[in-house]
């Protein structure tokens, strides 16, 4: 068990290293560098050259890379030249919002997936199952951004049930009850729009998992000894079918990253996804590299979590 976890973590180190190298090279390939946005173009070129030398921008790339990595490890991701503040601080503010959005999405995802998957698996080939399978069919094909736009159009603009942008209504003071309620209210529509799509694969998986388990011999045994139908489903089948779903939790994180970029832009929600796109359009490269690096690390850690849960759930993987 521990051997597997340690080995898995060791694999992670080169992954993060290659990721950081990739991010660094991409940042170097972009036009302009950390200095272009900072200085007044009227300054004497010799002074610029001196400043470049002082900031280490004339060093060979591997020295620059090493400087960047050591500073990033100490929590210094550079300076945003659009917001004129440290990137760490800027990301700190946005990360909180994205965290809540992702959490709400995950909660909705499982809230939709578990009842639908169970109904569909338990009463397979009934009308209800067909309806649920139909939904997963459409949800599988529908792109996230179109779904989100339609949701915003219908529930935000036409019906006016939900706010159409922002993460909190202006004027509410932080810390009050109203503030928390308003935050939650702003979360519902974006999180739900994303969950409607991301949940589809979980529903499909749960359905086929339950249908498979239903025909296993221990279920026949449970029925034979006289267990009630609800007991068979809730204790015997569900327990065996839900565990693999739990293991996919980590992989969901990778999906959420792509999702937040779309959702936050459509709903004008001030989170990391929005910050990332803004930093690109504003050529704010220190922010951009920090975003890619953080999201990449989040995805790598997500995969790690999933692999660990999977090995806890399924002992066959441990042997390998």
């Amino acid at each position: 068990m521990w051997k597997l976890i340690v080995r898995r973590i060791l694999i992670m180190i080169p992954q993060i290293f290659v990721l950081s190298l990739l991010v660094f090279i991409m940042a170097k390939a972009m036009p302009g560098d950390a200095l272009t946005g900072l200085i007044d173009p009227n300054i004497d070129p010799a002074a610029i050259e001196a400043m470049r030398e002082r900031l280490g921008l004339n060093n060979p790339w591997y020295v620059q890379y090493w400087d960047w990595v050591t500073r990033a490890m100490q929590g210094d991701l550079g300076q945003s030249f659009h917001f004129k503040m440290p990137v760490t601080e800027l990301i700190g503010q946005r990360l909180v919002n994205t965290f809540w959005l992702s959490l709400a999405t995950l909660i909705f995802t499982y809230m939709i997936a578990i009842p639908l998957g169970i109904t569909s698996g338990r009463y397979n080939d009934t009308f209800l199952d067909r309806a649920i399978t139909g939904y997963t069919y459409v949800g599988f094909a529908a792109p996230l951004f179109i779904t989100a736009l339609l949701m915003l159009f219908v529930f935000g603009f036409q019906l006016g049930w939900f706010p159409t942008g922002g993460s909190v209504s202006p004027g509410s003071a932080a810390g009050t009850w109203d503030y928390i309620l308003s935050k939650a209210y702003h979360l519902i529509l974006p999180a739900f729009s994303m969950a409607v799509i991301t949940t589809v694969s979980t529903v499909q998986y749960l359905r086929s998992e339950i249908i498979d388990t239903k025909q296993k011999e221990f279920i026949i045994t449970a029925r034979a000894k006289g267990a009630s139908e609800s007991r068979v489903y809730n204790r015997h089948i569900l327990r065996n079918s839900l565990l693999p779903i739990a293991a996919f939790f980590g992989y969901e994180i990778t999906g959420l990253i792509g999702g937040t970029i779309f959702i936050e832009n459509i709903f004008n929600y001030p989170g990391m996804g929005q910050l990332f796109l803004q930093s690109i359009t504003r050529r704010d490269f220190s922010v951009m590299t920090a975003c890619v690096l953080l999201f990449g690390i989040a995805a790598i850690i997500g995969a790690l979590i999933s692999d660990i849960i999977l090995s806890l759930v399924d002992p066959r993987i441990r042997i390998k």
Partner: peptide, 12 residues
């Protein structure tokens, strides 16, 4: 496979 593909494509 674990890279956040969408972001990297946008950056490229």
């Amino acid at each position: 496979m674990i890279l956040p593909t969408l972001m990297i494509v946008i950056v490229f």
